[in-house]
Design a protein around this nucleic acid. Structure first.
Lengths: 210, 210, 210, 210
DNA sequence: CATGAATGAGGATTCATTCAT
DNA sequence: AATGAATGAATCCTCATTCAT
């Protein structure tokens, strides 16, 4: 079902936003299947009837929440101004953003993964999300290859999938499974492994620890 | 309450095994929350009353299934006889086993991850599973470092977590999300990235494509 | 509580009429119990809050619609000018009007019947409706009996109830249940059966097929 | 959904029958739309969960009830042994059965009519029910025509539809709408009208009041 | 041991109705 | 007059679990 959102008064918009926010928190805390619609309503301070004014089902709400999360991750992944010139530093900056983006939404993304196994729409959203990060990684590598700074034999996409996966997965074991590490060390390590894996040339690597 | 196999007649043992098998298939196909006890019983060809002769709840059954899966993965992760001497080939062999082990149980492991967010017992099982692979990776790296074949500055455990995560995660995107790659290429790529990341010395890398 | 038209502005009268019309269509199409107040409002192009400005409930609305339908049927049942002198032709003309009147409101009349099982008010309206047709039929028969053209032994009311029922019921099976017949044939047949049943004398019947 | 009825134990059969009986009474008393599943369960003395062991929905239950009613009407419509030889008496006997069959199930048949407007399955059941009575009437007429006792010009089916409708409809107004008449008078009247309408020859009619 | 009938807590959903704007 | 957001009573339906046979 299509999420209802057209033509709302400001009061309506507020209520709707409260439901989305409450839903997001509930999903985070309890996981998709444990969330009861009445929980969300109680959290948002509305009656359960009101829920159905804005959403047709829990899935509808999750669609909305997932969309918002993906949007935020897109926004967060954009390397802002002041990109360093040094390739190594650039990889490091990207990894920091990458790690944070996935870490701060770890639970919801995994719920999206779960939903994707059942629902085609969620699957597409998930693939779209991954694609953004994969593409960014692949393009970064291609640029380095063109500059003669990285191994030209590597397939950019597959490399990006694998190394990106390393970052994503680390975000998960780090935050969800309690693997001990401080962020600085983690990012440094991920960057070292990434840089070496793509064969970033010694000239750059030389600056690694300076 | 799980009735253990030991106390059962052979008929009982057969029924129990049928339930575990049916449960495993059902979990694989539909995901934890979507599995109804009746589904499992129908698949096993027993009445739902019988289920409670052997298991106290769906969670009990899943515990059993998860235990079996983890056991299989342990077994599968053991590099058998005829380990190559060449470090690169050894990494490659390990990666192949690693990839296959995770790929063939991807769905169930992710269910275990999900269950781990709620249930302490499952969390421990999951950590135990990961630990086996992390340890194996860390020890391999430590040996290479001792032999002077890998960068001695790398923290073995963290490196193993990250590079192991790369393999695990690739298994997931490859099989569950449809990322295109054939196994041979994937393993070669994972091995290249892994070897370079740990700074496997040129001597070995030189043999990479021979 | 029904707000009557008299106290309304012209805008109000228009809105009210739109609701009645929309309700009539909705009842026709979906049946009493399946009609939601929101359906009616949507069809009338007003918000559901507005409904309660004019009607207190769905039943109120149906009361209005039923009243309008009954009124139309009364009007339609009046044999207009140019009544034929020939008794047979007169019966035929009446049957045609009768058939059309019931056929064109078949669904709503049956809803009224349904409503009548529960609600005394609807029951009275229904009885009133039937009474008009029964009386007309009974009077027609009495006149023929007085003229010596019909069997004087027949009880006029009971005869009218039964033969009128034949027409009503045929209207239903013809239009609602798909019994095949063209209007001309149906009316001819109903008239033949009616005329013979009351023993319309040969003098008249002789003209039947001329 | 298909009604579940296969492979029941005797206890199950008893429970199921209790639900059907309770449903029948509830439908009779309150009408389809007013029947709550819990009402039926309370009446049958079972919990509402049990209802769903045997039926998937209220509609399913009604299907069953309607089927039973139609079956009974079929059985009741069969003119038993000792059929009179006299055509008039035969029509009278048939009308008595006809009237009783429809009168005793008037409410449920009208519910079936209502259901038929929405559901194809119910429509077919209704048409089947009508067809049995229509055919019986048409065949009776055809026999009389062959024996030269009834007007050979009448279309047997259409005549049966119309005169049968007269009986059906009278059953309704008599029992549901309170039209005053005792059964004996009603049957005599229906028979007189029916016999005359088909032009039953004076020879037979002569015996009418003997 | 196995069966399957019965139970009822739990949760989803609808929709008539109210009311502040 | 009209709006549409909010409400919550009323129902439906599922499914884990118990228990007599």
């Amino acid at each position: 079902m299509i999420v209802k959102s057209e033509a709302l008064t400001s009061r309506g918009r507020r209520t709707r936003a409260a439901l989305v926010q409450a839903g997001r928190e509930a999903f985070e805390e309890r996981g998709y299947d444990a969330v009861r619609i009445d929980d969300v309503c109680a959290r948002a301070g509305v009656s359960h009837g009101t829920f159905y004014t804005y959403f047709g089902s829990r899935e509808d709400l999750f669609r909305e929440v997932a969309g918002a999360v993906v949007g935020e991750m897109f926004a967060a992944s954009v390397v802002g101004t002041g990109v360093p010139e040094d390739p190594y530093a650039r990889i490091e900056a990207a990894n920091l953003l990458y790690l944070r983006a996935w870490a701060s939404n770890s639970r919801l993304v995994r719920m999206l993964e779960q939903a994707a196994t059942t629902d085609e729409g969620f699957r597409e959203l998930l693939l779209e999300l991954r694609e953004v990060f994969v593409r960014r990684g692949a393009e970064g590598l291609r640029r380095l290859q063109e500059q003669g700074l990285a191994d030209p034999a590597l397939d950019p996409r597959l490399t990006a999938v694998m190394l990106g996966g390393m970052v994503e997965h680390f975000a998960h074991v780090w935050l969800d499974l309690g693997e001990q590490a401080d962020e600085r060390t983690a990012v440094a390590m991920l960057t070292t492994l990434w840089a070496r894996a793509i064969g970033l040339t010694p000239a750059s690597i030389g600056r690694e620890r300076s």
